[in-house]
C-alpha cells in the first residue's frame, strides 16, 4: 500500500513561474523514501503541498489512501514533519516546546521524556532553545515530529547544518525508527551520498519534473547499465573507425576509446575483430559510474 500517492501535481508561483510539472510521487508503507534534487528543484514545494502548507492547484494527493483535501486533520494526525529549518519557540525549554505540541496532539505526557531520550536531549534542563546549537535544534525538531508517534515522517533536509557525526547519528536514528517502529519516512536532500546509505526508495526531481522514481536497487541497476567500456590500443583512430561501424556512440577521449558497457561476449568479439585487423589491444576496462554521477547526469 502507498502511504503517499501524489499524481499529476503541477504548481505555479506565478503565471510564468511553473515550479512543479506533473509530479507523480508514490511512497510505500514501511519504506524510507529519499526525495533528491538540487536546490530549487521543487522538493520543498512538493512537501509543502503534501502537508497542505501550500494550496493545491492541479493534481491529486492521497495520504493513507484518502484525499488530503477532504481528510486534512485526520491525515495530519498521522504525520510528523520537519520542513526546512527547525520550528521552535526560542524563549521556551526543550520540554516546554514539546509540551506546546503535546497539548494539541493530546498524547501522553510521558512521550515528552521518551522523545527527549530518543534524540539525546534529556539533559538540557532549563536551557532555552534559543541557546541551543543548530544540531541540538535539529534534534529537538525531530523530537517534535516524533512526539505523537506518527506512522509517517516527512523530513525536509533534516541534516542541514549538522556536522558529519550529527548526520551519522541522525541516519542511525531514522534507520532505527523505520526498522523497530515501522515508521515510513519521506526525506528530502540535495546530496545523494548523504541518504544513499539510508533509503530504500528514491525519487529524483529537477526543474519541477520527476526524472527517476523507484527502488535503490533499480537505481543501482541503472548505474551498472550506465558503466563505460574503455579500449586502449596502439592505433586509436583506426580502432575508433572500426568500432563506430557497430557502436555509433563510441568516442575518443585522451587517446582511449569509450563506449557504453557491453556484455562479455560482445567485448570478446570486439577484441577479436580489432586484433584481426592488426590493431594491438593494450587494455580493456569497465568504468562504473557512482550513484553521484548518475544523479548528476539525471539532473544535468
Amino acid at each position: 500500500m502507498n502511504i503517499i500517492e501524489a499524481t499529476n501535481i503541477t504548481h505555479y508561483f506565478s503565471k510564468k513561474d511553473k515550479v512543479l510539472d506533473g509530479i507523480h510521487l508514490s511512497v510505500k508503507a514501511g519504506s524510507i523514501y529519499g526525495f533528491l534534487g538540487p536546490n530549487g528543484a521543487g522538493k520543498t514545494t512538493t512537501l509543502r503541498l503534501i502537508l497542505g502548507l501550500l494550496r493545491k492547484q492541479e493534481g491529486e494527493i492521497l495520504l493513507f489512501g484518502k484525499p488530503f483535501a477532504t481528510h486534512r486533520t485526520t491525515s495530519l494526525r498521522q504525520i510528523g514533519s520537519l520542513i526546512e529549518s527547525p520550528s521552535l519557540y526560542g524563549q521556551l525549554t526543550a520540554a516546554e516546546n514539546l509540551q506546546v505540541w503535546q497539548k494539541i496532539y493530546q498524547c501522553p505526557k510521558t512521550r515528552i521524556q521518551t522523545v527527549l531520550d530518543l534524540v539525546g536531549l534529556h539533559n538540557t534542563g532549563s536551557k532555552k532553545t534559543s541557546q541551543f546549537s543548530l544540531g541540538m535544534k535539529q534534534r529537538l525538531a525531530i523530537a517534535v515530529a516524533l512526539l505523537h508517534n506518527p506512522p509517517l515522517l516527512i523530513l525536509d533536509e533534516p541534516s542541514n547544518g549538522l556536522d558529519p557525526s550529527g548526520i551519522i547519528e541522525m541516519r542511525e536514528l531514522l534507520k532505527m525508527l523505520n526498522r523497530e517502529h515501522g515508521i515510513t519516512i519521506l526525506i528530502s536532500s540535495h546530496l545523494l551520498p548523504e541518504i544513499e546509505k539510508l533509503v530504500t526508495d528514491i525519487g529524483i526531481i529537477n526543474n519541477g519534473k520527476i526524472l527517476f522514481q523507484g527502488s535503490l536497487d533499480e537505481l543501482i541497476q541503472r548505474q551498472r547499465q550506465a558503466a563505460t567500456l574503455v579500449f586502449e590500443t596502439n592505433n586509436p583512430t583506426e580502432a575508433l573507425r572500426m568500432i563506430q561501424t557497430q557502436y555509433h556512440t563510441a568516442s575518443l577521449l585522451d587517446g582511449k576509446i569509450k563506449l557504453p558497457n557491453l556484455d562479455n561476449t560482445a567485448i570478446a568479439q570486439l577484441n577479436r575483430q580489432l586484433v584481426t585487423q592488426g590493431i594491438d589491444v593494450h587494455g580493456i576496462a569497465m568504468i562504473e559510474n557512482d550513484l553521484e554521477t548518475i544523479f548528476m547526469h539525471l539532473t544535468k
Binding site: 502537508l51 502548507l53 504525520i79 514533519s81 520542513i83 520550528s87 519557540y89 526560542g90 494539541i104 496532539y105
Partner: peptide, 18 residues
C-alpha cells in the same frame, strides 16, 4: 510575531487542527 520570529507557522499549520 512569536510564530514568525521562531519560524513556527509551518509547524502549527501541519498540526491536526482546523
Amino acid at each position: 510575531q512569536l510564530e514568525y520570529r521562531n519560524n513556527t507557522w509551518k509547524q502549527l499549520h501541519t498540526t491536526p487542527q482546523y
